[in-house]
């Protein structure tokens, strides 16, 4: 436990532990955003989730702590305060940072494939499964009439096996 590594004993340790716990709370307060109208907050959160940090690339604005993300968060907050709709804010940022900034890309000539691919793949997969299952059905009913080897054939088979054994000796 941490208390082992703290100097002093008894209550002093406990105070030390308490201070440690409080320090993390103090740091967490740093990036609190203030809104004049609290109803904007959920929209703000939602937008930050859906907007991509242009610098760090695989994080959204909510997760990233890079300088540009901080600026863009402030910008989103400012635009919300000015009364722009979510779509207008996205458009505003798209005009500056290109479509790259949208984690949910718009449907257009360059992105239709992204949107269509899952549907097409599921349909294709379903089709293949359907075809395979249809093909199996008749053969399953014929399982009982696998041709039985005639004595003639069995003889030939034994001969072949034996000749192989002899050959390898």
């Amino acid at each position: 436990m941490i208390s082992k590594f703290l100097p002093g004993s008894g209550w002093l340790k406990q105070v030390g532990l308490l201070l440690l716990l409080l320090s993390s709370a103090a740091m967490a307060v740093e990036d609190v955003v203030k809104f004049s109208d609290e109803s904007l907050r959920p929209r703000y959160q939602q937008l930050l989730e859906e907007l991509r940090c242009p610098k760090c690339q695989n994080q959204n604005l909510a997760d990233s702590n890079s300088a540009i993300s901080q600026d863009l968060r402030a910008e989103v907050q400012r635009l919300l305060g000015e009364g722009l709709t979510d779509a207008e804010i996205k458009e505003y940022l798209k005009n500056r940072y290109s479509e790259f900034i949208l984690y949910r890309p718009e449907l257009n000539r360059a992105t239709w494939f992204l949107w269509a691919a899952p549907v097409v793949l599921v349909l294709l997969g379903g089709l293949i499964v359907l075809r395979l299952s249809r093909r199996k059905k008749p053969s399953a009913s014929q399982e009982s009439d696998i041709p039985v080897r005639s004595t003639d054939q069995q003889q030939r088979l034994d001969e072949l096996l034996n000749s192989h054994k002899r050959g390898s000796e």
């Binding site: 242009p54 610098k55 540009i68 600026d71 863009l72 910008e75 500056r96 940072y97 290109s98």
Partner: peptide, 12 residues
């Protein structure tokens, strides 16, 4: 404050 920066789409 990076005002023109944002209008230009500067990210670094």
């Amino acid at each position: 404050r990076g005002i023109l920066g944002i209008d230009l789409g500067v990210y670094g």
